[in-house]
């Protein structure tokens, strides 16, 4: 049976890992390779590298980081942040990424997901969404934000999810900004609504404070995978502890990752 995935997200700035509380204020969490190796040893199911500043100089650093990581850790790698064109997607895939996560550019160029999926296959195109609960005329709306959560788009989250699926995205990462970095739990309601809407996997992001939050989003939130940064980077919970907790509560997770030497004959 398909295991639920636990995915640490490494927010990368100038080749270092940082992760902010509530999106804007960042703290240093170590070198990327150090983090990648640590997470592989702990049994992370996948790694996400997220280039938070996404400038051109930074993109070259990200390519470098990705290419080094892919020589050292043998697990799925996703890269996001600053992906604007088909050429960016190609560059990341050829630098060792298995999946490329597209967020702002999917809004600015509403054919990018479709063209990328046709060219490289749905399996490597991830639609990442920064969603926010906003009040408009006394009614709550779920709205898509871009530019690292700074700019509202007026786009409804559920419409955006349907379009992403129709255009051939292979996976959706839903980051709910109201919850992000608060460690008060994922937005279960929005995550479940998105997951019920589409038949592609939905990865929950934003708000993990402890393994119980992950349990909740993988059950009530109907997510296929839980992404988190702060709770892992600063050593509050290891991935092993988290997976053991989920396993004890009856969730199928991959536990056979112990690093043993490879037998050569």
């Amino acid at each position: 049976m398909l295991a639920k995935r636990i995915i640490p997200c490494l927010d990368v700035d100038k080749g270092r890992v940082v992760k902010g509380i509530k999106f804007f204020d960042h703290r240093d969490a170590g070198s990327v390779e150090e983090c990648a190796r640590r997470y592989e040893q702990q049994g992370a199911d996948e790694l996400v590298f997220y280039d938070i500043t996404a400038s051109h100089e930074n993109r070259d650093l990200t390519v470098n980081v990705l290419s080094k990581a892919s020589e050292q850790v043998f697990m799925p790698l996703t890269v996001g942040g600053g992906i604007r064109t088909i050429d960016d997607v190609r560059l990341m895939l050829s630098s060792g990424a298995d999946k490329v996560s597209i967020n702002t550019a999917a809004v600015l160029d509403q054919n990018l997901i479709k063209r990328s999926a046709l060219r490289f296959g749905s399996q490597c195109i991830v639609l990442a969404i920064d969603a926010n609960r906003v009040m408009k005329d006394g009614i709550e709306k779920w709205e898509v934000f871009i530019n690292g959560g700074r700019k509202p788009t007026g786009i409804d989250v559920m419409n955006w999810v349907r379009k992403g699926r129709a255009d051939g995205a292979g996976e959706i990462v839903l980051n709910v900004m109201n919850a992000d970095g608060t460690k008060k739990g994922y937005d279960l309601e929005m995550t479940a609504a998105v997951s019920e809407e589409v038949d592609i996997p939905v990865v929950a992001s934003g708000g993990a404070g402890d393994p119980e939050d992950m349990y909740q989003v993988l059950t009530r939130g109907k997510a296929e995978a839980a992404l988190a940064a702060s709770i892992f980077h600063f050593g509050q919970y290891s991935i092993q502890q988290t997976k053991q907790y989920l396993h004890n509560k009856g969730i199928v997770v991959r536990l056979d990752y112990q690093v043993q030497p490879i037998s050569r004959n």
Binding site: L2, A3, K4, R5, D45, S122, Q123, E196, D199, I200
Partner: peptide, 13 residues
């Protein structure tokens, strides 16, 4: 069908 996703992405035994 409600919980089975396509693509089949992730770790399986």
């Amino acid at each position: 069908k409600d919980i089975l996703k396509i693509p089949h992405i992730g770790w399986n035994s």
